[in-house]
Write a protein that binds this DNA or RNA. Structure first.
Length: 605
DNA sequence: AAGCAATAG
DNA sequence: GGTTCTATTGCTT
């Protein structure tokens, strides 16, 4: 906030020298041009949308309790206001302000506790899913932002109806009069602005949320431009104004990807403004940051970003954490880990996937090094334990995980000596897709869910999205909330049908399935490469070979790969336990006894 | 595979 | 900047 203002005088002298280097820089990436297998070489002009919900947590709470609409509202986590509504902002409350300061600024401020992210997380995924129902290329950034690559959609629509558009919303640094003339120069962006407006309207009428959107040719530019008019507005950036918007940034720290550490290193080189970075010789920058980072950063400073919108899919890890002033006793630690595990296990069970690794993190207090330092230890989750997490019947998963947690804990903290923790985090990662149901119906269902998620970006691009104006929301007469669509759209990804992240291996599941899939599946049986596949591989005992052979070949391979993965490769002995101790823990004779045995971890060695 | 640093909202 | 409660990516071993 108090970053030094750039003193351009010092740097002025060398500018001409630097400018020469500047001309050597490729202004666009040529990477895709040399690709031999390029089904779709990245088009010259992409259309990227960035969506950013207004004060997201506050909006969610105002939906849950409409009485909060017109009062100054702050969302409180521990002793800080993490966000607040616009009524509160008018009275001087800001993000990340301490509760004390906020109350002083605004005595009538209403506070809602926001440490439990459940509702925010759920609403966040509803927004992403809604966007996914229009277009398969959606990338999440935190809980309240999404990128959408609508290039294909725009191309299709422009070919079909080459109608003339003006812009919806603002156009960066150009008057509405001038914008009208620009619409024919940049029809993709003009159309993009209309798509952005319709998607914002869909989010508003189906979910009740408002937000900003940015329309541009890259993620970088879409994100930078989306915030220029707030709240609940949108703006489009034209290519001719790229230099303007980059120059408008108050410093290189404002470039997405330049965090505190990078900013410090740049400042050590005498660089403060974005312009400084643009003019600094790449070779010099490489010495400080390494070649790939330097090139990327320099391009970003010039407003050049060819990074793709990577479909996010289901989360790669689930974690739960709590922070506190001081935790220094064994009993507290055990109790806290138990609490965290309980809620994390419930989330894990709803997700349906099976975690393969478990991590425990702590933050230790140290007066000198108040700095952000966490330590963590992780371990594989033995197969039998992993299964108990999802198959809800078994009740002793918590106990086993607690035991594992305490083993990990003892690797970080010598509990025999005094300790002072300020945070504990538990995390499941390496999440594996659940085994598909064995019945025919189950297999068909999993066909739906496997195909419903974009498997990779190249394939997904082929999807011809429904026209935005076909969406129920824009038909006006439709009731909100439930899209009247077909069977299972990606919109309905939920606890019942979690989607694992798209695998990297190229699956040939037809991408059109995500949109054009209807109830008629007469064709699916025609693939039948039955004898070959079923003969060469062993199917799990609960799978009917006849049903399996009727599945499309690509799905068969998908399933085989999964089963290969989860086959009892071997017991991983990393959590080695002594037989005696294990026996003692297994009989859950009660919480008291359990805790007592766990306290062993705190005894002197 | 493990652990951490950096970045993000 | 760091607070909070997450989540991702990339580096290093």
């Amino acid at each position: 906030m108090f970053a030094m203002e750039s003193s351009e005088d010092e740097l002025e002298e060398d500018e001409t020298e630097w400018k020469q280097h500047l001309t050597d820089l490729p202004l666009t990436s040529r990477a895709s041009e040399s690709s031999l297998i390029s089904k779709s070489p990245t088009p010259a002009h992409r259309v990227i949308l960035h969506f950013d919900l207004d004060c997201f947590y506050a909006q969610v709470e105002m939906i849950r309790n409409p009485a909060l609409r017109d009062v100054p509202l702050g969302i409180q986590q521990k002793y800080i206001i993490v966000t607040c509504n616009y009524v509160a902002r008018q009275q001087g409350v800001t993000k990340l302000m301490s509760v004390t300061d906020a109350k002083q600024k605004c005595p009538q401020l209403v506070l809602v506790k926001g440490e439990d992210l459940t509702h925010y997380r759920e609403m966040s995924y509803q927004v992403t899913d809604l966007l996914l129902s229009f277009c398969p290329l959606v990338e999440r950034l935190g809980f309240d932002e999404n990128f959408v690559d609508i290039t294909k959609m725009i191309e299709n629509r422009l070919q079909r109806t080459p109608e003339e558009f003006s812009f919806q919303g603002h156009v960066y640094s150009t008057s509405s009069e001038a914008a009208k003339a620009k619409a024919s120069v940049h029809p993709e962006l003009a159309l993009g602005s209309h798509v952005a407006a319709e998607l914002r309207e869909a989010i508003r009428c189906q979910l009740g949320l408002t937000g900003c959107a940015g329309v541009a040719t890259s993620k970088l530019l879409a994100k930078l431009v989306s915030g220029t008019f707030k709240p609940n507005q949108q703006t489009t950036l034209l290519p001719e104004n790229v230099d303007d918007i980059m120059g408008s940034l108050s410093g290189h720290r404002k470039i997405p990807g330049v965090g505190h550490q990078t900013a410090k290193r740049l400042q050590a080189l005498g660089l403060v403004s974005v312009r400084d970075l643009q003019l600094f010789p790449l070779t010099e920058l490489e010495k400080e940051l390494g070649s790939p980072s330097a090139a990327r950063l320099k391009n970003l400073s010039l407003g050049v970003d060819d990074s793709p919108v990577n479909p996010t899919g289901a989360p790669q890890s689930l974690s739960d954490e709590d922070s506190f002033k001081k935790m220094s006793s064994a009993e507290e630690v055990i109790d806290k880990i138990q609490q965290l595990l309980t809620s994390l296990l419930e989330r894990m069970r709803k997700d349906g996937r099976q975690p393969q690794t478990f991590r425990l993190s702590v933050r230790k207090f140290s007066a000198s090094n108040k700095w952000y330092s966490r330590e963590s230890r992780q371990c594989p989750i033995p197969n039998h334990v992993g299964h108990k997490i999802t198959s809800a019947s078994s009740d002793d998963a918590p106990a086993q995980l607690l035991t594992m947690a305490m083993k990990l804990f003892s690797k970080m903290v010598d509990a025999a000596a005094p300790f002072h923790l300020t945070l504990i985090n538990v995390c499941f990662s390496n999440l594996q897709k659940p085994a598909p149901a064995a019945s025919a119906r189950g297999s068909i269902t999993s066909f739906f869910s496997l195909s419903a998620f974009p498997q990779n970006s190249a394939q997904s691009q082929i999807v011809s999205p429904i026209s935005v104006s076909d969406h129920p929301c824009s038909l006006g007469a439709m009731t909100p909330i439930i899209p009247e669509n077909t069977t299972k759209t990606p919109t309905s990804r939920d606890a019942a049908s979690p989607q694992a992240r798209p695998t990297q291996s190229t699956s040939s599941v037809p991408a059109e399935a995500s949109r054009t899939l209807t109830t008629s599946h007469s064709s699916t049986c025609s693939y039948g490469g039955d004898a070959d596949v079923t003969a060469t591989y062993r199917l799990p005992p609960n799978v009917d070979p006849r049903v399996f052979s009727q599945l499309p070949a690509n799905l068969q391979m998908e399933l085989m790969r999964e089963w290969e993965q989860r086959r009892p490769v071997l017991k991983i002995p990393t959590v080695s336990r002594k037989p005696g101790r294990e026996a003692k823990e297994k009989k859950g004779t009660g919480r008291r006894c359990q805790a007592n045995s766990l306290l062993d971890y705190f005894k002197p060695a």
